[in-house]
């Protein structure tokens, strides 16, 4: 399109831009820096596209990323899981919860463009929240970033009813920034994010364990243990998963490993005692529980277990 700019067209244009300042702002230095490492366009292919129906951009976007993580997704069932009728939309926390229900680990990326681009370049579609309105009159929308083009400074997304929509980076960045730069990937249990913060990842896995099947949780803890073998919690988590799977021997070994790394870990000591009790080693359990009986937080729980262990130890004898 060739436009001959005349003064008559430029004046309303200037006025309009004064009203919508963000529209005229160029790409900031931070964004330019984030794009710098990439000299070629990145595009993840294929990423399943679920055109949203009604106000269901949340489930549509979630369906795309879950499908890409290797799941077979029923879009209408997903709507039932995350759509909030009276709000006419979907909450961020419910998207995270639904990912857990589908045995995927939701990971909220640090609020930086570089982190998002890196994940996309590594082949992971990123679910983002956008504010397409203004700060005081927000219009919230979810989309999935599936690529970007550093030369044309465009971001490529599945958004609403449009697949592979290319948007100017600065316009998109404005919408994303107004929504707190919220970006999520959903990972299968045998993967880690590109740059996971250890403490936050452990919390993420603990929250995942509470919802996921024990075999999936176990795989996730094992994956974390490969990266951080010295983190005692990755062994506690494995022990908990083994226990839920009914493998008491493996659970005992995992809790012993936790205590070898962190001898004062009260949770591992309690869990070890509990599994010993269940596997018929009640007297061993007694000595574990006794060290914890005065613990300020779990004392009552320990004393209850200790009572059971003592009774069992006395009736079966220490030889058991």
């Amino acid at each position: 399109m060739v436009v001959a700019p005349g003064p008559r067209r430029a004046v309303p244009a200037l006025l309009f831009c004064a009203l919508l300042l963000a529209g005229c702002a160029g790409l900031g230095p931070a964004a330019r820096e984030a794009l710098e490492p990439f000299d070629a366009p990145a595009r993840i292919e294929p990423v399943a596209f679920f055109p949203q129906t009604e106000l269901h951009c949340g489930p549509a976007a979630l369906a795309s990323v879950l499908d890409h993580s290797g799941l077979d997704i029923d879009y209408s069932a997903l709507v039932e899981q995350v759509y909030l009728p009276d709000r006419g939309g979907t909450l961020q926390v419910e998207l995270l919860a639904a990912a857990r229900s589908h045995e995927r680990i939701p990971w909220v990326l640090p609020p930086e463009l570089s982190a998002l681009l890196a994940e996309v370049a590594a082949g992971r579609p990123v679910l983002v929240l956008e504010n397409q309105g203004v700060r005081n009159l927000p219009y919230w929308h979810y989309a999935v970033v599936i690529g970007f083009d550093p030369d044309r400074t465009e971001i490529i997304q599945h958004s609403g009813t449009e697949a592979g929509l290319a948007r100017p980076m600065r316009r998109w960045l404005r919408d994303w920034t107004l929504a707190g730069r919220w970006a999520v990937i959903t990972l299968p249990p045998d993967q880690l994010p590109l740059a996971p913060d250890r403490e936050r990842w452990l919390q993420t896995l603990a929250d995942f364990e509470a919802v996921a099947q024990p075999s999936t949780a176990l795989r996730a803890w094992q994956t974390a243990a490969e990266r951080w073998p010295d983190a005692s919690l990755v062994w506690l988590g494995q022990g908990n998963s083994h226990y839920r799977l009914g493998d008491l021997e493996a659970a005992i070994a995992a809790f012993e490993k936790t205590l070898a790394l962190d001898p004062r870990q009260p949770s591992a000591a309690f869990n070890l005692g509990w599994v010993l009790l269940e596997s018929g080693q009640a007297c061993g359990a007694v000595s574990r529980f006794e060290t914890l009986a005065d613990h300020p937080a779990i004392g009552p729980r320990v004393r209850e277990a200790l009572k059971m262990a003592r009774e069992s130890c006395e009736s079966t004898g220490p030889g058991q």
Binding site: L236, S267, A268, I298, P300, R301, E304
Partner: peptide
């Protein structure tokens, strides 16, 4: 409360954290 807790078994990783 304590009795109810004792019945839940292991300390979960969430609780441990």
């Amino acid at each position: 409360l304590a009795t109810a807790q004792a019945a839940t078994g292991l300390i979960s990783s969430q609780e441990a954290l």
